[in-house]
Design a binder for these strands. Structure first.
Lengths: 242, 242
DNA sequence: CGAATTTTTGAACCAATTCAAGTTCGGTGG
DNA sequence: CCACCGAACTTGAATTGGTTCAAAAATTCG
């Protein structure tokens, strides 16, 4: 099943993504094994299991780690265009799990083909590194939140962050962006309990700083939220797509 | 000043580091600009400033982020062989600072030379990605700690982690490894206050699970500490060195 | 419509912070 | 050699931000 060819890739139409040469896209096409559909809630990568390399084509997912008693930490959320499983190419076994939030489509790449990519197209190798560095920056920011920010600030940063990423992707409608995660996801991402996450969200809502309706997020006063959260990162202008 | 040539690199003698071909080492040598000495406590990279690419040649350092009111989060510790400033090649401005814990020596590389490296030596490009992924895994683990582990577990994981990295480097003497950080560093790394970090360390000490004397760390019962911290990662066998 | 999931709220409790004050350690100069 | 100084470590007491347990209200979905 190869439902989507890389030459006609729907994601490439978005202007966040840097253009590739025809040769590069042809190589990516050859590198691609299948186009995979997976239902919401399914595991894309199992913890402590070997894993393939994917690009998330549509939908949302998240990377996570768990402890034996069930405590779970969401490391970061994955949106269309994000690479999945790079760390697993380097390790024998995946140090984290990946779960689909919504129904997702994935571009699955050739196992062990990563080295070929670097050798044949150094420019694509560079792009992979770019994406890895980018992801690391997001996790750094999350670590700062979880380690040092108050509950209100943490949620503020997370909402702003996801909002900006969606805006960059160009999927906003009327200033609202799709928001498929629930409060348990938020709690797991910011290192707080569900109950306290709920109370804090309620507080933010009463301050008129956020609103979720029918799976869409609005931030009525983004400037105020940015100041409260002390989070001013500008969204990435243009980024690679593999 | 080019005090250390890459061909005679002191680090390459350690067996943790993968061997490179003569051509690769020659390229790295050409890529290197200077050998830098910096005193303990000095900044290697300023937050929100542009930065070069380095490899830490000797000593310890750490990456960190701060908030405007002084709250500081240490993202991870850097030991000899670690790359510094990769994220900054991708961003215009460094999203984090880097500070020397001890006196350090650094191999400073050509600004903007990273793309040449990928083009001329894809194998080295692959190595850079490998190191980036490796660092991300460490931060993932730290995020799990700070988000979900108890104070005792967090400290346990950090101590085990640093201990194992030093063992891998082969710098242990009599089961003890150099431990140049103080309790404030530990507190900043695990997202707890200095006071609570101290109390928790004291508790670990009374359990006979750790001991620091004259800047050297010993873990008398590593198995017990691993179980308590639920941290079983095996140290990396062999890794690239740029 | 009814069942399941998600969100919301209350109340008791606890882990961690803050503030404050000692104590010990390492180094430096008289 | 020891007295002194600053930095790092240690401890106590009061407070607070966040958790846990429990249950109700709202929403989603078959």
């Amino acid at each position: 099943m190869k439902a989507v060819s890389c030459q006609d890739c729907g994601l490439r139409k978005f202007e966040v993504f840097r253009a590739n040469t025809k040769e590069e896209v042809d190589f990516i096409q050859a590198f691609k094994r299948k186009h995979v559909h997976l239902a919401a809630g399914k595991l894309i990568v199992r913890e402590a299991d070997s894993a393939d390399l994917y690009t998330l084509y549509s939908g949302w997912a998240f990377r996570f780690k768990t402890l034996s008693d069930g405590r779970r930490q969401i490391l970061n959320f994955l949106l269309p265009g994000d690479l999945i499983g790079l760390q697993d190419q380097v390790a024998e076994v995946s140090p984290h799990g990946v779960e689909a939030v919504t129904d997702v489509e994935l571009c699955q790449f050739a196992r062990d083909g990563l080295w070929d990519l670097f050798r044949n197209f150094p420019s694509l190798g560079y792009d992979v590194t770019w994406l890895a560095s980018q992801e690391e920056r997001m996790i750094d920011e999350n670590l700062l939140s979880v380690g040092r920010r108050t509950a209100l600030e943490r949620i503020g940063v997370l909402l702003m962050h996801l909002y900006k990423r969606s805006i960059a992707l160009g999927v906003a409608v009327d200033g609202r962006v799709p928001f498929p995660i629930n409060q348990q996801h938020i709690a797991d991402a910011i290192g707080l309990s569900l109950v306290h996450t709920n109370r804090t969200l309620r507080r933010l809502y009463k301050l008129g700083l956020y609103e979720v309706r029918e799976g869409w997020l609005a931030l009525p006063r983004p400037g105020a939220l940015e100041r409260l959260a002390e989070y001013f990162e500008t969204p990435v202008r243009r980024r690679p797509l593999i």
